[in-house]
């Protein structure tokens, strides 16, 4: 049986400016259903790698293959299509549209694709996720009124909304209390339970989260 990797990086490098080499010749492959933890100290390129895999940024050299699609020569519209189809991304420092409510921010990924009659279903899905992440009752609140932990969870709900094939989470449990971290880990575990979803997360100081991973990619050793 031929299987397609969820994500494959081939000799990926990223250089900022003239000589600031953040990633160099990084190659790895992530199968469907696999969980990969990207580790390493601050500034080692974890976020950069996740953004490259999430097709938010482009590598300086090498190629990224997402669900069998080589993204090297793709234009922005094609990348958008791939992001839209396969990827959910949870940021280390979440960004929201401050004038929209929590629920509306969670629904952002589906606005361009959802038709009027589908919106109700998406709202129900968003509310389920918010509830699972312990955010019931906050759906009408503006993001500016949320704590750091709440913001992280809203961002994760947004990344999970479309039940993506690949979920990328940048330090999902950083800057949150242990109870919240536990809740986030539970949601991530439940996401990967089917064995069909690939999860990549960056982790810095959460051994519990680290234990969830099938494999570790330590950027200090690359």
């Amino acid at each position: 049986m031929i299987t397609v990797s969820a994500v494959e990086c081939v000799k990926v490098s990223k250089v900022y400016g003239e000589a600031n080499v953040v990633l160099k010749d990084l190659s790895f492959s992530l199968a469907e259903g696999e969980i990969l933890a990207v580790t390493g100290p601050s500034g080692c390129g974890k976020t950069t790698l996740l953004r490259i895999i999430g097709l938010i940024d482009r590598p300086t050299a090498g190629k990224v293959i997402v669900k069998g699609h080589d993204t090297s020569d793709m234009d922005e519209d094609e990348l958008v299509e791939l992001r839209r189809t396969y990827i959910g991304f949870s940021f280390q420092e979440p960004t929201f549209i401050p004038t929209l409510s929590v629920l509306e921010n969670v629904l952002l990924p589906i606005y361009p694709i959802a038709r009027g009659h589908e919106l109700k279903r998406w709202k129900e899905r968003a509310l389920e996720l918010l509830e699972a992440l312990g955010l019931s009752g906050l759906e009408r609140r503006k993001p500016g009124k949320l704590s750091t932990g709440q913001r992280k969870r809203v961002d994760l709900a947004r990344a999970l909304l479309k039940d993506p094939d690949i979920l990328i989470a940048d330090e999902p449990t950083a800057s949150v209390d242990e109870a919240t971290a536990e809740l986030i880990r539970e949601v991530l575990t439940s996401y990967t339970e089917s064995g069909e979803k690939a999860l990549i997360f960056a982790v810095h100081r959460d051994p519990e989260l680290l234990r969830m991973a099938d494999r570790h990619l330590d950027l200090t050793k690359t």
Binding site: I56, D77, T95, I97
Partner: peptide, 16 residues
């Protein structure tokens, strides 16, 4: 600017 970046990351195309 940052909102646009967010929407792009969320899969919003140029037309959207």
């Amino acid at each position: 600017k940052r909102e646009i970046g967010l929407l792009k990351a969320m899969g919003w195309a140029a037309g959207d």
